[in-house]
Design a protein around this nucleic acid. Structure first.
Length: 764
DNA sequence: GTTAGAACTTAGAAAAGCGACT
DNA sequence: AGTCGCTTTTCTAAGTTCTAAC
């Protein structure tokens, strides 16, 4: 593992201690948060104060040794800006609320009109993209590919490239068909269809990329699908206030149903959630309702809740035909709105439905949980498409907010969401060219890092000794990012989101230093909430120099002060950019994840293992990465039970095995006695049976191990986002493992480029 | 150099789908 | 046919990074 230095191995092991955050822990954090907030309320003055204190102190201490450029202004400024922004936001949301026409039938449904289907290949060559009929120039995908400033790729025709196509897809089709035991006719028809589809699959990775920063030349789509209009509750389903039935106005009723649907969820018991909901609910009430409803605790939504439960029950109980009808309708919607035409190719859209209104559910202790996520109307939506395309039609009687033609971006539609004020986008599916190219490029950047990571590591180790505080901080932070695969850690606006951190935003309270712990020296304990409020807990021994630096960074700071007070992601990334073109903090995560997979696969795969055993090895390698990246999940609710079931199966199989063995023995004895052909055959039959059962048992045991080890670990995220798929493809080719064992259909679609191009000797 | 906004990737939970078993 | 348990798909929140404007 040339690019990897020793620390990785210990990491994989030591990370195993990461536990999922327990309720207790969450509560602990909550308390801390309160303290924290109270403290930070006076941040404006206090920080200045404490910072200048810190400055003074530091300067006293390191005056001669260290050049301390400390800009500390901005606290007050920041506070003011913050206020301004808040005000603006409030006004914005107020106006959007009051401007909202009270009755809008067209709100939320798709136009009835169903114009001609999207042509899958437009006749005229609208863009300048080479059409598939013209043989595309083949791309070379060696290391030099995907430089940051893309160069023109040699134009060179390759007719053979087409031959080797989609072996996997074909295999699978056949398998599927066999499995379902379709009639011969159907089988033949499907086979043909599959072939045709495979032929139509476009290998964008064999074509040139745009070099001018544009993302497409031609883009045509039908616009997003809006959430269905609100259907008022039937008369008999009643909301009660203070024990008395009360008919709500449609708007207030709709918001009430959002809450009623969540009654069984823990959310609805949380104070902040209830408070936020109540506040936003009141905004939708008529003045009369407002005057009556004054206490959320006196509201009784239970009948509403039961009504929705009954409805979903009824949906489950529907007849086959009805279900089929719904399915067909969904398919129709998908085929009409789920695709677009980008540069002569029909591409799948990732999310073609606009998010329906509801109550905001943040992750972790989110200050905005329970707020009303308002309904998006066509008037809120910006459409992006090419000028010369057939523009999407807004629903009848409605208008788009804007139609623009910006081919420097990849989105088809966007709107501004009212909780954080951020923009949401309609974009293409991961299998699309535009996403795939970017993904490929990401791994190429990580591979470039592999080539220079030794140099960078030497450099940051050197920087631990720097005279400048900011450089030492940068170097220690980078070390964490590299060694522990931490995220960059941008600053976040306080009170806007849950209190989570990444590397650069770590606070004093998130680490503990132990000069000695058990057998080890210089141990750092990390305990913080990262992205999605997932707890990161880890104890690792670090080098003495790192340890000493951390002690220095901690000096004279409060628990809620930043550990790296002279560092942020922008400074860090600027530095990284100088070390390598295209290098940013997250590249380390990609690099370390992929290199770990490759190395673990090498280590764990035994050539004479069976296929299931090899797949287990693969999953274990995948797991090592997931642990490194701290990808956790809540243990499945039925975990214990499902483990038990599996164990029962194993026990049964074991009994079967001993029975089969006994029979084999008997058959052997019989054969010894009689020496005839018949008894010989019987022995063979029994021997085979034993073998088969042994295999089955192994497989079950394998499954059990895999599942047990996977209890709290989510493999999907790393598989989908961090592991260069070519490593997996190469591995599967090398060992003759069908790719279906590693990648499901969706994943194979996303990684089609890798499946097509990686050979068994591919090296990350 | 700071900050806000835009664009895009990464993330886990929940819903939906589906095959095996009863 | 209905239920169960697992897998896949969908959903959308929450990150990172880049850019442009001061």
């Amino acid at each position: 593992m040339s690019g990897d230095h020793g620390h990785r191995d210990s990491q994989v092991v030591s990370c195993g201690a990461n536990g999922r955050e327990t309720q207790k822990h969450r509560d602990k954090h909550k308390d801390k948060d309160h303290k924290h907030k109270d403290h930070k309320k006076e941040k404006g003055d206090k920080i200045k104060h404490s910072n200048s204190e810190h400055k003074e102190h530091s300067e006293k201490k390191h005056k001669d040794k260290e050049k301390l450029k400390h800009s500390n202004g901005g606290s007050d400024k920041h506070k003011e800006k913050q206020k301004d922004k808040d005000k603006k936001r409030e006004e914005k949301s107020k106006s959007s609320h009051s401007e909202k026409p009270k009755k809008e039938k067209e709100n939320g449904y798709v136009g009835e009109t169903s114009p001609a289907a999207i042509k899958s290949e437009p006749e005229e060559n609208n863009g300048f993209y080479p059409s598939p009929q013209h043989k595309p120039p083949k791309r070379e995908y060696d290391d030099e590919e995907f430089e940051n400033k893309p160069k023109k790729v040699k134009v060179e025709l390759d007719k053979k490239a087409k031959k080797r196509k989609y072996e996997y897809e074909d295999d699978e089709e056949e398998e599927d068909v066999k499995h379902k035991k379709k009639s011969k006719d159907k089988k033949a028809a499907e086979g043909k269809k599959a072939k045709k589809e495979a032929e139509d699959k476009w290998k964008w990775w064999e074509e040139e990329r745009y070099t001018d920063g544009s993302k497409w030349r031609f883009l045509e789509h039908k616009g997003p699908v809006f959430a269905p209009a609100y259907e008022p509750l039937p008369e008999k389903v009643k909301f009660y206030y203070n024990g008395k039935p009360m008919k709500l106005s449609p708007l207030a009723e709709e918001v009430a149903t959002f809450f009623a649907k969540m009654l069984d969820h823990e959310y609805s018991t949380k104070d902040i959630f209830r408070k936020n909901f109540y506040k936003d609910w009141r905004k939708e009430m008529t003045s009369e309702e407002k005057s009556i409803i004054t206490d959320l605790n006196k509201c009784d939504f239970s009948e509403l809740n039961e009504y929705f439960k009954a409805q979903s029950e009824a949906r489950k109980q529907m007849s086959k035909e009805e279900k089929q009808k719904i399915k067909e309708e969904n398919e129709r919607l998908l085929s009409e709105y789920g695709f677009c035409v980008m540069d002569n190719h029909k591409e799948r859209i990732g999310n073609f439905r606009i998010e329906p209104p509801g109550l905001f559910r943040g992750r972790g202790d989110h200050p905005k949980m329970g707020m009303l996520k308002r309904r998006i109307r066509p008037e809120d939506v910006i459409i992006n498409c090419s000028k010369d395309s057939k523009h999407p039609k807004p629903p009848p009687g409605a208008k788009w907010k804007e139609v623009r033609h910006d081919n420097k971006v990849t989105w088809l539609a966007s709107w501004t969401e009212n909780i954080q004020g951020s923009i949401k986008y309609i974009m293409l599916n991961p299998s699309s060219r535009i996403k795939g190219e970017k993904d490929w490029q990401k791994y190429e950047t990580a591979r470039r890092l592999k080539k220079c990571v030794d140099r960078i590591r030497t450099q940051y180790r050197d920087d631990w000794k720097s005279k400048e505080m900011r450089i030492r901080q940068r170097a220690v932070a980078l070390y964490f990012i590299d060694k522990l695969a931490l995220r960059a850690g941008n600053e976040k606006e306080e009170g806007e989101t849950a209190d989570t951190v990444g590397c650069c935003s770590l606070r004093v309270e998130h680490i503990k230093l132990f000069p000695k712990m058990d057998e080890q020296e210089y141990v750092v304990e990390f305990d913080f909430l990262g992205k999605d409020s997932i707890r990161y807990y880890n104890k690792i021994p670090v080098e003495k120099r790192v340890f000493k630096n951390l002690q220095l960074f901690l000096e004279n700071k409060q628990p809620e002060d930043d550990l790296f007070d002279r560092l942020n992601t922008s400074i860090l990334n600027k530095h990284l950019q100088e070390l390598m073109d295209g290098l940013t903090a997250k590249v380390f995560r990609t690099y370390n994840a992929s290199i770990t997979l490759q190395q673990q696969l090498k280590e764990l795969t035994c050539s004479d293992d069976s296929i299931p055993a090899k797949v287990l090895s693969y999953n274990r390698a995948n797991r090592a990465v997931a642990i490194l990246c701290n990808h956790q999940r809540a243990p499945p609710k039925t975990f214990e039970k499902s483990m038990q079931n599996l164990q029962t199966k194993i026990d049964e199989k074991q009994n079967q095995l001993s029975a089969a063995r006994k029979q084999l023995k008997a058959a052997k004895a019989n054969h010894k006695a009689s020496h005839d052909d018949k008894s010989k055959k019987a022995v063979e039959v029994k021997r085979k049976a034993v073998q088969r059962i042994e295999e089955q048992l192994m497989k079950l045991q394998m499954q059990a191990t895999d599942r047990e080890e996977n209890k709290q670990i989510a493999l999907g995220t790393s598989k989908l986002n961090y592991l260069d798929p070519r490593i997996s493809v190469a591995w599967s080719k090398k060992w003759g493992i069908p790719i279906e064992k590693i990648y499901n259909k969706t994943q194979r679609e996303k990684f089609a480029w890798a499946i097509d191009m990686a050979e068994k000797d591919y090296e990350f």
